[in-house]
């Protein structure tokens, strides 16, 4: 069933585009071109994150956190980085796929976390900064709590359901 999701999205988008007389090919190219910008911005970030996360993980210091048996140690850098930077956590996610495989327990958990949380600090700074809000009241706490809940539910889900 879930194998149908991607083909269906592509199909619906293109059929709707043709009905609305959008030049679908040209538009696709135009959109795809934007990826150059993104990739150029992403690469330095990716390199930096892989460097520091690899040093951190391979030093085996995460073994010191074994007492928190609830959270798999190798996922810690991702949990720390997720609220702060989207590209960094995407880099860590790919790194986890590379190291443990996307279908491993860690790979699945990392997919859940990436899919269900967002970059709270970044959004907060960008969104409030853009309109000059200085007093953010309880916004940071609610945002971080929402992330924490997503991560907790992801871990519970992987331990008890799948």
């Amino acid at each position: 069933m879930s194998n149908y999701i991607m083909p269906l999205i592509v199909l619906i988008v293109i059929i709707y585009g043709i009905i609305k007389k959008v030049p679908v090919y040209d538009t696709f190219i135009e959109g795809a071109k934007e990826s150059f910008d993104l990739v150029l911005k992403l690469f330095p970030c990716l390199l930096a994150m892989i460097l520091s996360v690899n040093i951190f993980l391979k030093s085996n210091i995460v073994d010191l956190f074994k007492f928190i048996s609830f959270i798999p140690n190798q996922i810690l850098p991702m949990i720390i980085m997720r609220p702060i930077s989207g590209t960094s956590s995407l880099a860590i996610l790919t790194n986890i796929y590379e190291m443990f495989g996307p279908d491993s327990m860690l790979g699945t958990l990392a997919s859940y976390i990436q899919g269900t949380t967002d970059t709270t600090f970044y959004i907060l700074t960008l969104y409030f900064g853009s309109i000059g809000i200085k007093k953010i009241k309880y916004a940071l706490w609610v945002g971080l709590l929402a992330d924490l809940i997503s991560i907790t539910i992801s871990i519970l889900f992987i331990n008890f359901i799948s």
């Binding site: 592509v10 988008v13 959008v22 538009t27 135009e30 959109g31 795809a32």
Partner: peptide, 8 residues
């Protein structure tokens, strides 16, 4: 990004 552009 290409698909998204068409949807947009």
């Amino acid at each position: 990004l290409g698909i998204a552009k068409i949807a947009e």
